[in-house]
Design a protein around this nucleic acid. Structure first.
Lengths: 238, 238
DNA sequence: CGCTGGATTGACACCATTCAATGCCCGTGG
DNA sequence: CCACGGGCATTGAATGGTGTCAATCCAGCG
């Protein structure tokens, strides 16, 4: 069933009643595949649906006049990148796939009736957007105050913890964004990302093999990034 | 009545019914004055109330190990900085006053019943937190991709537009944060903020007299900061 | 009147960017 | 099967935007 990742995510916060679970599984999904680089929503769009990520990696980003790109968040299985469209009609940024991904689209109207009929689901959605904001604040601290070394370490920590939460690997990550994408997320040049990741490898914190990342020393990586998972507001420890 | 700024803010989005307006004005506020630098909520706190800014300027920030501070948002009249506490029990950042400010505190429990009883108010609150997130994304772009000159121009534009919205001045701003605070918000040193603001003055974009800011050339300032007010999702143009 | 916090300015160091070239892996087509 | 091409990773050298340190200035205020 397409809605399973969403149900899993909600169940990680509170137990759904049979009625709630049934309502979610009954949502009319239109499942689509997205190619790398493909845009799901563009700045200025007035979406008529929300996209639920079933597989792959999707990100939100803006493009500036001079062509510079800022990635503002990565989304994986179970996330609804444009959930905000429920209350904000026009997109102020872009949403795109980074690798081949599968997305399930649900009409806004249907999602709206779901939230009015099931207040606990509405609350969970609201909470989810609040956690997105908490992540944004943390990214702001990351970019605003930390060295390249710490920024990258922090991002890697976040990616790994969030992958753990949805059950994709424990001490690693299989879909590491490219170094250029990491740079665009952290306000660094791809060149400097490369140099700094080499440093992380030489220091024995991580190993990389293409898009596969393995953490060798979690404690050191966490310390290097001043990573405290509190901002993710997880129910269980990961 | 203490709730007036909140009612004004909501009325700028949609028309309140008499019942809704009455319910808001009937909220049990505890009004308190906050001195500059005073903390309203601290990281790790589990607030039992939300703070509504009646007067002054309040900001959210985090402090890193090495003592560096990142300011993540400025709040003025009508804002509820920790509205997220409705659904996220523990604070992941600090909230503090920058200048002498007046805050009205409302118990979380009361605010929760207000939202369950009046779904349109709940929706407006949710929407408000979503706009906060949009502002955060814009700050991320600002810090991640732009020069010091553009960053400062952008921040000044935002401060002025938001001041206009709540009816505090049109082409200026009376409570400009200190250069150190601006630096902490933009990921710049106070020294460099100073140099860059001098440049803005020499270019004829702004004038400053202490905490008073006057814009001389709005078009140029907006262009310099690549400022597009769309992300504020205002109902009317400002 | 001296104190204090903020604004201002100069000199110097450095982290990160830019530009450019090279290497590597892999899918595609001849 | 091999040659080619494209995307990504890697590396070097030179430039420059910002940070750091430190001194000075200024206005408000007790």
């Amino acid at each position: 069933l397409p809605a399973t990742p969403l149900v899993d995510k909600l169940e990680s916060i509170f137990s759904l009643t049979d009625e709630e679970r049934g309502a979610i599984h009954g949502l009319p999904f239109e499942v689509r595949e997205a190619k790398p680089g493909e845009a799901l929503f563009k700045e200025g769009d007035q979406p008529s649906s929300c996209g639920l990520v079933l597989h792959g990696i999707v990100c939100r980003f803006k493009i500036l006049d001079e062509g510079r790109r800022q990635i503002m968040m990565f989304h994986t299985r179970g996330d609804i990148p444009n959930l905000e469209s429920l209350h904000i009609p026009v997109m102020d940024h872009n949403v795109g796939a980074l690798c081949p991904s599968i997305i399930a689209f649900v009409p806004l109207s249907v999602l709206r009736s779901l939230t009015t009929e099931f207040p606990r689901i509405a609350a969970a959605f609201w909470r989810d957007t609040l956690i997105d904001a908490a992540v944004l604040r943390t990214w702001l601290v990351n970019i605003g105050c930390k060295s390249a070394y710490a920024r990258i370490a922090h991002l890697l920590c976040e990616l790994i913890v969030r992958a753990r939460v949805v059950g994709l690997g424990r001490e690693g990550f299989d879909h590491l964004p490219t170094q250029e994408e990491i740079g665009d997320a952290l306000g660094l040049s791809n060149v400097h990302v490369n140099r700094t990741m080499r440093q992380l490898r030489e220091d024995g914190l991580i190993v990389t093999q293409g898009p596969r990342l393995t953490v060798l020393d979690w404690a050191k990586l966490q310390a290097a990034g001043e990573f405290d998972p509190g901002y993710l507001h997880l129910e269980k420890a990961f």
